[in-house]
Design a protein around this nucleic acid. Sequence first.
DNA 1: CTGTTAGCGCATTCAA
DNA 2: TTGAATGCGCTAACAG
Lengths: 334, 334
Amino acid sequence: MKARRATQNDVAQLAGVSQATVSMVLSGERGAIPAETFERISAAARQLGYVPNRFAQALKTSRTMTIACMVPDITNPFYPALMRGIQSVSEAQGYDVIAVNTDGSPERERHFLNWSLQGRVDGVIGVFWTLRAEDFRSVVEGGVPVVRIESARKGTGEIPLDNIYVDSRAGSFAMVRYLIGRGHRRISMIAGRGGPQGVRVDGYSAALTGSGGMPDVVLDDQFNEEGGYRAAQVILQRTERPTAIFAANDLMAIGALQALNDAGVRVPEDIAVAGFDDISAARLVSPPLTTVAQFQHEVGIRAAETLMARLKGKFSGEGTAVEMPFSLIERKST
Amino acid sequence: MKARRATQNDVAQLAGVSQATVSMVLSGERGAIPAETFERISAAARQLGYVPNRFAQALKTSRTMTIACMVPDITNPFYPALMRGIQSVSEAQGYDVIAVNTDGSPERERHFLNWSLQGRVDGVIGVFWTLRAEDFRSVVEGGVPVVRIESARKGTGEIPLDNIYVDSRAGSFAMVRYLIGRGHRRISMIAGRGGPQGVRVDGYSAALTGSGGMPDVVLDDQFNEEGGYRAAQVILQRTERPTAIFAANDLMAIGALQALNDAGVRVPEDIAVAGFDDISAARLVSPPLTTVAQFQHEVGIRAAETLMARLKGKFSGEGTAVEMPFSLIERKST
DNA sequence: CTGTTAGCGCATTCAA
DNA sequence: TTGAATGCGCTAACAG
């Protein structure tokens, strides 16, 4: 039942030329082909509905026209927007995007990175929580370029690894400065333990101590609402409550919001709450959450453009680091 | 710099056998190979870090070991969970999943469906808003099985197309019955115009008229919070306000929640609000939203299993239709 | 039991 | 300017 697709051979026969000529014409080598032949071949191809077989192509050229997008967890509301950004430019250049979830675990991150060396993809764009620059060496030197999405400027050593980052530390710093500007003096932070949120805590601490405040950080194992809920409960038991809570990400902030609500604490009147990421739920909760936006879509676009440039050999050597902007979104929770 | 990967030839040489024998052994044909040779070849493969080239394989077998997951928009919080379900079973069977966004538009749905015929994927799992069974004929008959995720039992005609569906009409019916059970008599519905939400409105109307109520449906062009916000505003201007609003999806329900909040209407005391889908934000808003859950993850798993069965030739002919359960999630908004 | 052979569809020499 | 020939790495007959 499977209809055989037309091959270059079929086109060649119909056009009365050799397969090699068809190959030339269809790969756009206008150079030395008379317009008449060119037209005849194009017509034949169109008539037969010819579509190149990418696997034959890949076998011949070792280029797969596929890139991997590796994120910790696609159900985390932060990543889909990033993916769409990546897709929009990759697709336009004829690349397929395949998505993999690493769960942010060292084993899986390493596994898939290695897997990308096995000739399945031409390049990788990813958010890695546990791997360091050195871990990418074999892949990058094996000819598969990697673009990392990061939360801080990172050194790449001599490895030609490209980084796109939003300066989370600065974002965090700005948020705390903003809270201080609104009159808050006692600001507590809640964050996940052992994840990539360290720089956000750093920014918080720096801003606070810079203005004479005392950092107070509560960590929880979970990066999500549950973790935020628990952390906020801890804070509520303090003898001297803070006037503001800054969460390392929106999910935790939302959890905190619930904890405060359940405890009968009004937001923002009694305690202000701020988050980080601007996930879509941030503006849907009540009160809508003040947060730091990162423009995931644009980050994805930039990352894909960088990768495409590498793939086309537009530049090589030297890793790069490009900073993307963040923006403080003021809503009702502060 | 690109290190050439070891091929079967390399393994064969190292093991002192022919390449064909290596192929046999490595594809698991234990049958007729002496343990000694088998061991020698495996050892050589391991030593060389041999990994099969999937493109050569694909070229030879016409099987790509890749499936396409086509959804309207991966940034819609409903789909990522579905995708993970699909991935978990596909990956386990050695298949890659590539994600495409159709935007729910006829052109793009058709485009990608057609594209899947071009030898790039072995099968398709998708949520289609505009295509009808007949549109899948060429693809399915071209040897690429398709599993549709639907919101109602659908006929497939004679086309061997598999459907996995949650009976949205019944879900909607159940929700309205529940509201009626809570004492509501005037229940309005808000929904998107021209999308796939018709069956939900049907269920609503059936339940309401069944108990002597009068359907009141407000449509908006947008399926999201904005649409829900506007629709709720319309309802608030009614001279006789309803006591409950049922939204065709959670995003619209959340928009309605905001409209009510902005208008100073208390939920659920003055007006109850219910949604549909149980997206993650549903339990994060205030008050948490009563809604109908669809277990996207399980639906994804089931869909992938169905596709895998088709791909392995476990069954053929006759399209199937499998119903998946829904569940009413009672929260504070009603 | 194992080796030989013949392509899958294409890009790319090298000749003509 | 075009055609013939080659091989990418693999699978699947078919021989031996």
